[in-house]
Design a protein around this nucleic acid. Structure first.
Ligand SMILES: Nc1nc2c(ncn2[C@H]2C[C@H](O)[C@@H](COP(=O)(O)OP(=O)(O)OP(=O)(O)O)O2)c(=O)[nH]1
Ligand SMILES: [Mg+2]
Ligand SMILES: [Mg+2]
Ligand SMILES: [Zn+2]
Length: 597
DNA sequence: GCCGTTTTCGGCCCGACTGTTTTCAGTCG
């Protein structure tokens, strides 16, 4: 079982305990939910942690859960879990994906109506609601029966609770809405918060906060957003709508004097908020989105904060960048920093630190079996210049080996080099330096897909896997390391091959990869394409902890895509990377020394 | 069931909105 599957199992146990509703099970539910989240985000397979007897290093796992996990790996199942899950129909877990259905409602309906087929349960409920059989149940009524039908309608259109969108798309959707909101003179401030401000790789919904003295009017204005397709709920503190594409948008409104606490709350993450609120409690205050209330002399008014900094400062903490607010040690590190102790908070790498982009495809016809870029070299160089880059690396895909003889490939590579150099010389006003590189396939046997005599015509290369993903982990690691062994192979690009639109990447033995990279001075790419973001934030953190050097590249196939650098930088920040962890923050001469070493 | 500037027991974040409810449970943020 992989971490995702174990996480799902733990979530089910949390749900089961929630249904039981025993007086002492409340915190057990929370414990299992927390463990489920931690396991999902843990960078190393639990099976490996188990074999190394290191399960106690997984946050949220205590002696009881550790013994369950051990049983899972030795016997293939956990008898305690099986016993709990036997008591509830599995069909209810399907219903939990429908918006508005939680453990209680789902359990109630599937048991009352004896619906135990997970494949038909949604349709079964729909039919019952249409026949008006649900309204008469205690706790239900005409309205909730209609709401169930609506929710199932949304569900059938693809609005599954766990559906998420890519960071790049969320960025666009949210800027459209914030632009709209800013047009109202009543709106003093507006910010996109939640996972978007933390720059998570995928986004569940869009969370917005507005500072205003006129809450009601602003909420009404928000509800008139042209792309609004449904009003999910509205109240005096905010509202929730859906867009034309079904995506949910949450709005909270707040007077400017309480802006700081609202922004803090709505930025999250949930786990970070809980940690911060527990810290506040230890200091004698209750924290919510409106401010801090002293625990004793409750009559004293709430303390208000118009900026986040002031709130964190009051709690004795320095500013914590949104990207690392995930309860992965940032509050402890912030406390250290405040006391001048180590390890404190990292000085995270910034977009303005980036001095080059080494993975760009041009429209030069290199006769590859992969895709070309859509812009010519000069257009891309000009774009790089406008971004203030000191250098870029053109990394077209290698020419197809099946379609061409070695001589033909050699000739293409010679012509390409001469062409790029000529173009570069032809425009003296472009300050950005050009590195002639190549993105070379690592073939299944580990060979690089470029004849040896061609390497003379490139400065360096990035190497990557584009075929035969289904391979044993150790074999895949052998393959990648063999490819990376070539002296001119400097960067391992999109190292897991995952696509956030669905394709899961292949597995690698990261210990071996990291060790090799360190020993041989190779870098690993953080691919900034919103479709990839590969390495991922959690793997970046592990790489940084292991002293691995990273390079953030856009993998651009057009000049516009070069603006995706911010997404890659944000993932590096989420992985606690500092400037010196990222090689393309170096000046041209330094970088060139590294690349051509 | 987890966890430790309160360290092996006694805490565990806090609030908005809705529907079916006379006071709250459920779901969600
Ligand atoms: N204190 C507290 N804050 C919460 C809780 N749930 C959510 N929040 C805050 C922190 C979240 O970042 C913020 C927005 O909630 P969302 O459910 O939209 O989560 P988020 O945007 O982080 O992730 P998402 O991509 O939408 O799934 O609200 C909670 O249970 N307690
Ligand atoms: Mg959100
Ligand atoms: Mg939300
Ligand atoms: Zn590429």
């Amino acid at each position: 079982m992989n971490n995702q599957q174990i996480s799902d199992l733990f979530k089910k146990i949390a749900v089961a305990y929630q249904i039981k509703n025993l007086p002492n099970s409340r915190f057990k539910v929370i414990a299992y939910e927390r463990a489920s989240e931690e396991i999902k985000n843990f960078p190393t397979p639990l099976e490996k942690m188990w074999k190394e007897d290191r399960l106690d290093e997984v946050p949220g796992l205590g002696s009881s859960m550790i013994s369950h996990v051990k049983e899972l790996f030795t016997k293939g199942k956990v008898s305690h879990f099986e016993a709990i899950l036997r008591e509830i129909p599995q069909s209810m877990f399907t219903l939990l994906s429908v918006p508005g259905f939680g453990p209680k409602k789902a359990y109630r309906l599937v048991t009352y109506f004896k619906l135990d087929n997970p494949k038909t349960v949604v349709e079964d409920i729909k039919v019952l609601a249409e026949k008006g059989k649900i309204a008469s149940l205690e706790g239900f009524g005409e309205k909730s029966q209609k709401d169930i039908l609506d929710a199932i309608g949304q569900f059938e259109k693809g609005q599954v609770k766990e559906n998420r969108i890519l960071l790049g798309l969320a960025y666009e959707l949210s800027s459209n809405i914030t632009e709209y909101l800013k047009k109202s003179p009543l709106v003093k401030k507006v910010l996109a918060l939640g996972s978007l401000r933390r720059m998570r790789e995928t986004i569940g919904d869009i969370d917005l906060a507005v500072a205003t003295e006129k809450s009601d009017e602003v909420i009404e204005y928000f509800l008139k957003y042209p792309d609004q397709s449904q009003i999910v709920e509205k109240g005096k503190e905010g509202a929730t709508i859906r867009l034309g594409n079904g995506r949910q948008v949450d709005l909270r409104v707040i007077p400017p004097r309480q802006w700081g606490s609202m922004v803090q709350y709505f930025t999250g993450s949930k786990a970070h908020n809980i940690q911060l609120r527990e810290l506040a409690l230890r200091k004698g205050y209750s924290l919510n989105e409106y401010g801090l209330t002293p625990l004793k002399n409750k009559k004293q008014k709430i303390l208000e904060f118009d900026t986040e900094e002031k709130l964190y400062k009051f709690l004795g903490l320095p500013r914590i960048e949104p990207e690392i607010r995930e309860d992965r040690g940032e509050i402890e590190a912030a406390i250290h920093k405040a006391k001048d102790q180590k390890p404190g908070l990292p000085q995270l790498v910034k977009l303005s630190d980036i001095k080059g982009d080494l993975h760009i495809h041009t429209s030069f016809n290199i006769e590859t079996s992969h895709d070309l870029g859509s812009h010519d070299i000069l257009t891309l160089l000009k774009k790089a210049d406008s971004l203030g880059y000191e250098y870029i690396g053109i990394s077209d895909h290698n020419p197809s080996q099946s379609k061409h003889s070695e001589d033909k490939i050699l000739s293409i590579m010679k012509i390409r080099k001469a062409y790029y150099e000529h173009k570069k010389r032809s425009n003296k006003s472009i300050r950005t330096q050009l590195l002639i590189m190549l993105e070379i396939d690592i073939r299944p046997n580990g060979d690089l897909a470029l004849p040896n005599q061609c390497f003379e015509y490139i400065d360096a290369s990035i190497v990557s896997v584009h075929s035969e993903f289904r391979m044993d982990k150790e074999k895949m690691t052998d393959r990648v390391l063999k490819g990376l062994s070539h002296p001119k192979a400097r960067i391992l690009a999109h190292p897991t091959g995952r696509l956030l639109t669905g394709r899961v990447g292949f597995e690698l033995n990261w210990e071996r990869i990291f060790e090799f990279c360190k020993k041989n001075n190779k870098a690993i790419e953080v691919n900034a394409s919103p479709y990839r973001l590969d390495l991922s934030d959690i793997m970046i953190r592990l790489a940084v902890q292991n002293g691995i050097k990273l390079i953030i590249n856009t993998d651009s196939h057009s000049k516009e895509e070069m603006d995706n650098m911010k997404f890659g930088v944000s993932q590096a920040r989420r992985g606690w990377a500092q400037k010196n962890d990222i090689l393309n923050t170096m000046r041209y001469n330094e970088f060139k020394d590294w690349l051509l070493y």
